[in-house]
Simulated assay, not measured.
Amino acid sequence: MTNRPERNPVLLEFFQKYLSEENTAAFIHRVASVYTCGTLERLSHHGLPEVRRGAVMALCFVSDYSSNHTVGMALSDSDRGVRLIAENGIRSLWIRAGTPSQRHRLRKVMSQIQGNSLDSALKDADALIVDAPWYSEAYNQRAQVFFKRQNFERSLRDNHQTLEINPYHFPAAISMGQCYLRQGENVMALDSFRRALRLNPNLESIRTQITYLERQLEEM
């Protein structure tokens, strides 16, 4: 009886082709023709970093909010490439939590915020939250509206609700830290920034902010 080396999953070949071709549509088609999201989630724990990278990237393209835990855990992967892919792609899963209509309404709110149409954004975000109170990204977008209006208490409340629903939402933790800073609550800001960094160790600017606040608090 011979010990044959374990074959690498075909996903590795798909990912390598993607890196050489940079053809997202072809990568998605190849992956979807072979793998279920459940299998991709299992491959996100594979021993080879390149397989994990391919699995996490594929999940960000083809899966929905049900893979949030898997991709959220990948934010802390030992491989920097996996972490970066997770960071760049996880927001797409957050948006896909709703129905097609709810996603369309969310994108409208996001566009209104970018255009600084805050009254319209707030009205539409309110309506979306009433319709889908479990949609964490709707709370996060409304928190951004309140932040732009310097209503930091309301922004904190919505960011807290975002994290209650989606515990991997590191941008909400960052936003809470920014709110606390503007209120002069440096200890609370530090706690929020530390939470964001625990969720996503790639946040070098937040790491720098933490160091600055720690020194500031030591000198008080």
Rank of each mutant, 00 (worst) to 15 (best):
I85M: 08
Q102A: 11
Q150C: 14
N68H: 10
S63C: 07
Y135R: 11
R157C: 09
F61G: 13
G98K: 02
E137V: 05
G98Q: 02
G115A: 15
T70A: 15
S66A: 15
D124I: 01
D124Q: 10
A138Q: 06
R83M: 11
S67W: 10
V82S: 08
S155D: 01
A97N: 03
W94K: 04
A143L: 03
S78H: 14
R103C: 11
M110D: 03
N151C: 13
Q150T: 15
A132C: 12
I129S: 06
P100C: 07
I90C: 06
V71C: 08
Q144N: 12
W94F: 10
R142Y: 04
D124W: 01
Q114L: 01
L84K: 08
E87L: 06
D64C: 13
L106T: 02
R103K: 11
N116E: 15
A132P: 04
R91G: 11
D124R: 04
G81Y: 06
T70L: 13
L156G: 07
K123T: 13
L128K: 00
G81R: 06
R96A: 12
F147T: 11
G72T: 12
F147N: 09
K148P: 10
L75A: 09
E87G: 05
V109A: 01
H104K: 07
F152P: 06
Q114M: 04
D77L: 12
D119Q: 14
H104C: 07
K123G: 06
V130I: 14
S101M: 07
S63K: 03
S67Y: 10
A125P: 04
D77Y: 07
S76Y: 03
A127W: 07
S63M: 05
E87N: 13
H69T: 14
Q102I: 00
N68A: 14
E153G: 08
A127E: 15
I129K: 04
R83G: 05
K123C: 12
V82L: 10
L59M: 02
D77I: 11
S136Q: 09
Y139S: 07
M110Y: 00
R154G: 04
D119N: 14
G89V: 08
S136M: 08
W94Q: 09
E87R: 12
L156E: 10
G72P: 10
R83H: 05
A74S: 15
A86L: 08
F146L: 09
H104D: 08
D119E: 15
S76A: 14
I113R: 02
R154I: 00
A143P: 01
R80G: 06
L75S: 10
A132G: 07
R154D: 10
Q150F: 12
I113C: 03
Q102S: 09
A127V: 09
A121P: 02
A58C: 01
N140C: 13
I90N: 04
S78Y: 12
S120C: 07
S120P: 00
I129N: 06
R107T: 01
S63P: 07
N68C: 15
M73R: 14
L106E: 01
D124G: 03
W134E: 15
A127T: 12
L118M: 13
L59R: 02
Y65D: 12
L84T: 09
S66R: 14
L122W: 02
E153A: 11
T99V: 00
V71K: 06
R80V: 14
D77C: 11
A143R: 01
Q150M: 14
A143F: 03
S66G: 14
N68M: 15
R83N: 04
